[in-house]
Amino acid sequence: MSGETVRKKLTIGYDETEYVCGKNAIEAENDEGTFIVSETISNIYPEKIKRFSEGKIIFVEDGENSKRIDNYEEVCRILMEREVERNSYLTYIGGGTIGDLSGFIASTYKRGLRLKAIPTTLLSQIDSSIGGKNGINFSGVKNAIGTFRNPERIVADTDFLMKNDQIIREGMAEIIKHGFSMDYTIIETLLNNDMESVKNGDILRDLIVKNADIKASVCNQDPYELLGRRYVLNFGHTVAHGIEAISRNSITHGAAVIYGIMYEMKMSEIYGMMKYDGISIMNKLMKRYGINKIEVSDEMLDGSLSYIMNDKKIRNGKITIPMATKPGMTNMAELKIEVFKELFLKAGRMM
Rank of each mutant, 00 (worst) to 15 (best):
G3F: 00
T5S: 10
V6H: 04
R7S: 12
K9F: 00
K9T: 00
L10Q: 00
T11M: 07
I12S: 10
G13R: 11
G13W: 09
D15Q: 13
T17A: 08
E18Y: 13
E27N: 14
E27R: 15
E29F: 09
V37M: 06
T40G: 13
I41F: 10
P46N: 13
P46D: 14
E47G: 11
I49Y: 02
K50A: 14
R51G: 14
E54Y: 12
D62I: 06
N65E: 15
K67Q: 05
D70K: 10
L79E: 08
E83D: 09
E83H: 09
V84E: 00
L90C: 06
G95Y: 00
G99I: 00
S102C: 10
P119S: 14
T121M: 05
S129P: 02
I130L: 09
G132L: 02
N137C: 10
V141H: 08
K142R: 12
N143I: 01
D157Y: 04
D157L: 03
D157V: 03
T158K: 04
M162I: 05
Q166E: 10
R169Y: 08
M172K: 07
I175Y: 02
G179H: 01
T185Y: 02
L190Y: 01
N200P: 13
I203F: 01
R205F: 03
A216N: 10
V218L: 12
Q221M: 15
Y224D: 14
G228E: 05
H237L: 00
H237A: 00
V239P: 04
A240C: 07
I243N: 01
A245S: 13
A245T: 03
S247L: 02
N249L: 07
I251Q: 07
A256T: 02
I261R: 04
Y271W: 07
M274P: 01
M274Y: 02
K275G: 07
Y276R: 12
S280A: 15
I281A: 08
M282N: 07
K293W: 00
E295D: 15
E295F: 14
D298S: 15
E299L: 02
G303Y: 08
G303D: 11
L305D: 12
M309C: 09
N310S: 14
D311Y: 04
G328C: 06
N331C: 05
N331R: 06
E334S: 11
E334Q: 09
L343A: 11
L345I: 14
R349L: 14
M350R: 07
